[in-house]
Amino acid sequence: MKKLYLNDIILNILIIIFCISVPICLSVFAKDDEKTAVISHDGNEERRINLSEDFTYFTHGVEVTVEDGKAYVSNSSCPDRLCMKMKDAQNVGDSIICVPNKVSVRIVGKGAEKGADVVAG
């Protein structure tokens, strides 16, 4: 049994290393200066806000604030308010999601496409 515990620990460490390395590899390839917060509801894009400007946008029960190059949810009508506790989005690829209100805030770079071509799964 002792040997198996070692296997478990190795497996867990491998999973964590894999999970950490994937986003790091992706962020190395995605280098952008001009960042935009894309606010969507139910998969439909609603508004783009440049992160360099200060702005507050209200949609479907979620209040999104862009301030000092960061975007965060300042108020929400959802019951658990997990979106308000999420980390501020400031780098390309970061996102804040409110599942009950179906609102997502995503940071995209300059060269990023307008939206996904195909959504699989």
Binding site: P23, G43, I97, V119
Partner: peptide, 14 residues
């Protein structure tokens, strides 16, 4: 599937 948004996959590694 609920959100109809693929951006959620960025949370998967964490």
């Amino acid at each position: 599937m609920i959100m109809n948004d693929i951006a959620l996959i960025t949370y998967l590694p964490v």
